[in-house]
Design a protein around this nucleic acid. Structure first.
Lengths: 214, 214
DNA sequence: TATTTGACATACGCGTCGTATGTCATTATC
DNA sequence: GATAATGACATACGACGCGTATGTCAAATA
């Protein structure tokens, strides 16, 4: 009978651990998640965890890396499919906000992650998202669409505003209305980047965004 | 001999606990701070802590409330002393960034706080800062200086951008240069709020900010 | 087949948290 | 002014969770 090859078994074990931890971290939070509990829920023990990831923080890193990879893929997807560079950038920002609305991302990436692993701007994966956004801004600058400004600085400010907006929306008692207000204000700020003063059609509603990882 | 009155002794005990916890949280972080250790450093035991604050989270709340009160006072100080409303708003944003550069604020308020107590936009004290900023934006709107936009939404976006900019600056290998880039990009975004298109003097460097709590 | 590697499980010690209980000074009651 | 009641703490106890050290057994290697 076909016992799976070695490498696959190992990868499967790692994946099971990451999945179990991701679920635990996303629901009860990092601090409250018992390693004995969620390793058992994966049919394993802490021994496997320490063997593969070193310690609890190592597992959190792996979980965040996985989530970040999904986020990056989703961001690239929306920015590429837009008609213009500027629209792609705006859509990317909106996708950023939408993702930050998801409880799992809020809890693991936005709250527990920074507390346990330190400032997110130092994470390799988070930098991937920022770099993607920076590249788009660089192109927009070359194109002459936006004013002369450091792309990375603008990307970080914009992502910061997006993330806070998302947390505000997610925790408001009326997310619908709050979201409308936030998006409108967001567009106003983004117009500060545009070169030709303000455009006539203010609202400029961004496109819808899908929730699938790939 | 004058044994201090009862109320004062109690207030003193609470203050000592908050001070000791603030120091521990600010240096080693909330999770790593041993209650036995830092209560002992205040000449007390955990018994006093549980009596006054219920649990470790309660003490963190008290610490954050204290820091937040100081932040609010500093923000009001800079916004009031400016010549114009707009300049006061810009100064306030800059003060926000400067405060977020301080390691104690970064660790306790920006990282551990959200992880332990949940989303900061729900904290009463944090809302005080936002509300202060919102009021200024409301006045600017009435004045006709800025475009028609929800003041609270704009305040939250701007504070979010400020906080992320601060973390980026604080963790960069060259804070000086990074700060310059961030402030410049920040002003560009803020000009999106201004009504009369962009002003001639782009840089518009904000005033210095003091570091004293009161 | 003998040996080594490595993927995991088990066992142990230590620190930390929360609670339950105890003690003593202050305040209220008569 | 003696006694009871409150409250501000300290002490003692139990439980849990983490990290490490050690053990086991299958698979790769020779």
């Amino acid at each position: 009978m076909g016992h799976k090859p070695r490498k696959e078994m190992i990868a499967e074990t790692r994946a099971k651990l990451v999945a179990a931890a991701r679920h635990a971290f996303g629901t009860v939070g990092y601090a409250e998640a018992s390693m004995d509990d969620f390793t058992a829920s994966a049919g394993l023990t802490r021994g496997a965890l320490y063997h593969h990831f070193g310690d609890k923080k190592g597992l959190l890193q792996a979980v965040i890396a996985e989530i970040d990879a999904e986020m990056l893929a989703r961001l690239k997807f929306v920015s590429v499919r837009a008609d213009t560079l500027w629209q792609g950038f705006v859509d990317e920002c909106t996708a950023y906000i939408e993702m930050a609305l998801e409880p799992e991302i809020q809890r693991i990436v936005l709250r527990d992650g920074p507390a346990v692993l330190g400032d997110p701007s130092q994470w390799p994966s988070q930098n991937e998202c920022i770099r993607s956004m920076s590249e788009n801004l660089q192109k927009l600058k070359d194109e002459g669409t936006i004013v002369a400004v450091d792309p990375e600085a603008a990307a970080r400010l914009v992502s910061g505003a997006s993330l806070h907006a998302a947390q505000w929306i997610a925790n408001s008692e009326n997310p619908e209305a709050t979201s409308k207000k936030a998006v409108k204000a967001f567009n106003v700020l983004l117009e500060g980047l545009l070169r030709q003063g303000r455009s006539t059609g203010r609202p400029q509603a961004p496109a819808e965004v899908d929730k699938s990882p790939a």
